[in-house]
Design a protein around this nucleic acid. Structure first.
Lengths: 326, 326
DNA sequence: GGAATTGAGGACAGAAGCTGTCCTCAATTC
DNA sequence: GAATTGAGGACAGCTTCTGTCCTCAATTCC
């Protein structure tokens, strides 16, 4: 066994677990002399890691930010936290990171011990993310399976529900997972139809069966995301709303994330919000939390929903229940 | 430069990036013969990695799930996704993972290249998590600084705002970060008061200045979390509410996360919810969106708030604005 | 069943690298 | 100035590595 290689990983692990190590402590932990530790530090530096040092009393070594990310040595708890966080992010809660979150999750889960995998699932079941704009909920296992198949160039087969509700079996060569318009899409080559297809991942019906590997074809487009975006429906939200808000635009804009909608001033004391959501409840909740008087200009069904909520709130602010019975 | 060590890292990176590699491909990528690749595979196995192999046509090597989590080699995008996901989780969105999320985040950010750090901050600024029960928002930088100081046994000094509003400067030896009752606490030894103190992290006023390292003292308690929980106020929420809901408990319970409150049946058609929040707005809207008629039993100020919302929603469902002007 | 394609692993020569020891020098803190 | 840290060269002795060559085993496809 190459003692040097093994020792370098252990040295990296030590340096990551605590920022400051005198050379003598490292030597003792690794079972070598301080001269060898200095050689090992040189080796890690040659591999691209940035290790700062300070001679003198209270001196020692410290792993620093360099140009290259070192291999991350994680404890069980840290790995679970990362996996759950990435699963949550794969659901669309962190705009712009969905695809790399699924890639990182797939990479981690390919090597995550089984005992930790159960823990990840249990913790995620207890997590209920709520965002202003979400698409259908997707099982992260499905995403990581598809992500792994994409990178491994492995054919897969699965059940699929078309837009008209018809169920078909599909055999495909998967190429890319794309998150756009608050949904996951899979760009794949359909073997039975002998052509490229874009699949809505929320319409894939498990299980996904892995098959033989394939030689990747040249993609027929340069920009996969643009291609997928053109192929999908142009109405990501079921409801589009226009709201008049009775507050200065400046006061509201500072609390508004860019994904939440479009805000423009009407005059000094009011502004217009154009936003969207898939649920009248979420739309109402979102508007109610903005802390300003408002009027729903469009759609009429949102006005009806807001009126119904107003009546429910009015009833809720009156106590008719007998306190003795509760 | 130790070619073997460098090559092992490259081999690991190759195996993590794609699941299936014939030995000849690995040899070509690494610039050695297949015999040396087989030796390298043996070396990784001795380091604890589980690498499966399959001889024969379409054979090759694959990194598998073992008993031990191997060092993770991440791309820039994956590292950014993990960092942002952990920062979000540190805010309390994933119950039970706050502390390990901050530990993992501190570990990652100690080595994250500067060019990626800016990206992480920009992406997180665009993320607005909203949960049913939240404490004060804390800058993740502060958390990772404190976490790093804890593990590095480094004294720190910072400004602090007491519960009465008084501003003091503090010099402490930090020991543990604890997340409980929807807030972050720091258990530290106060050098000026020569005693243990528990600090609310949201009351720490930056910057946190690192000072000399210290020799850790023996903690005066066995269970740090229990100690901190006893030391904090027993009213994590500013508002505690009791709500009568006019729906069967079974229908509501299935959509209720365990952190959201305590639900108990009154009779076949109604139940009682005891919950809390720090914002009357969030409390009211949260209850309003449970999909059931309700009555606010306690507190009276919540009833007042719900009545005000009812009026706002009633006004909001009537259009008075001139459509031509918008 | 044989061919082709993969992995497994021993033996060997020649080359390369590693470690501990010893030492001088430099930097920092008390 | 003493004590405590890191830096790094020189050297002997030892260890390890790589490529080559080879036999054997397993798998898939024709």
């Amino acid at each position: 066994m190459p003692a040097a290689s093994s020792r370098l990983l252990r040295l990296l692990s030590l340096l990551q677990s605590r920022p400051e190590w005198p050379g003598a402590d490292l030597a003792q932990s690794l079972g070598v002399t301080t001269r060898t530790v200095r050689r090992d530090i040189d080796r890690l530096r040659e591999l691209g890691y940035r290790i700062d040092s300070l001679p003198g009393v209270a001196g020692g070594y410290r792993l620093s930010v360099g140009n290259r990310l070192p291999p991350l040595l994680l404890t069980d708890e840290e790995a679970v936290a990362i996996a759950v966080g990435l699963r949550t992010a794969a659901g669309g809660t962190i705009h712009g990171l969905e695809e790399s979150s699924v890639q990182a999750l797939a990479k981690l889960e390919r090597v995550l011990p089984v005992r930790l995998r159960h823990q990840v699932k249990a913790l995620q079941a207890a997590t209920v993310p709520m965002t202003a704009a979400t698409g259908p909920t997707i099982d992260p296992d499905l995403l990581t399976q598809l992500a792994t198949a994409c990178y491994g160039h492995e054919r897969v087969s699965f059940g699929y529900t078309g837009s008209g509700g018809e169920r078909t079996g599909r055999r495909v060569e998967p190429y890319r997972l794309v998150y756009t318009s608050w949904r996951w899409y899979l760009l794949a080559y359909d073997l039975d139809r002998d052509d490229w297809r874009t699949f809505r991942v929320d319409r894939v019906r498990g299980p996904v069966r892995r098959e033989h590997r394939f030689t990747p074809r040249e993609l027929p487009m340069d920009d996969v995301r643009a291609y997928v975006s053109r192929a999908v429906s142009h109405h990501p939200y079921r409801y589009q709303a226009t709201i008049l808000l009775r507050a200065p635009v400046r006061r509201l804009a500072e609390g508004l994330p860019p994904t939440a909608g479009q805000l423009e001033a009407v005059d000094d004391t009011s502004c217009l919000l154009r936003t969207g959501a898939n649920s009248l409840d979420k739309l109402a909740l979102y508007i109610g939390l903005m802390g300003a008087d408002f009027e729903v200009l469009e759609p009429a069904e949102l006005r009806d929903h807001v009126r119904a909520l107003a009546e429910r709130f009015a009833r809720g602010s009156v106590v008719t229940a007998d306190p003795e019975r509760t």
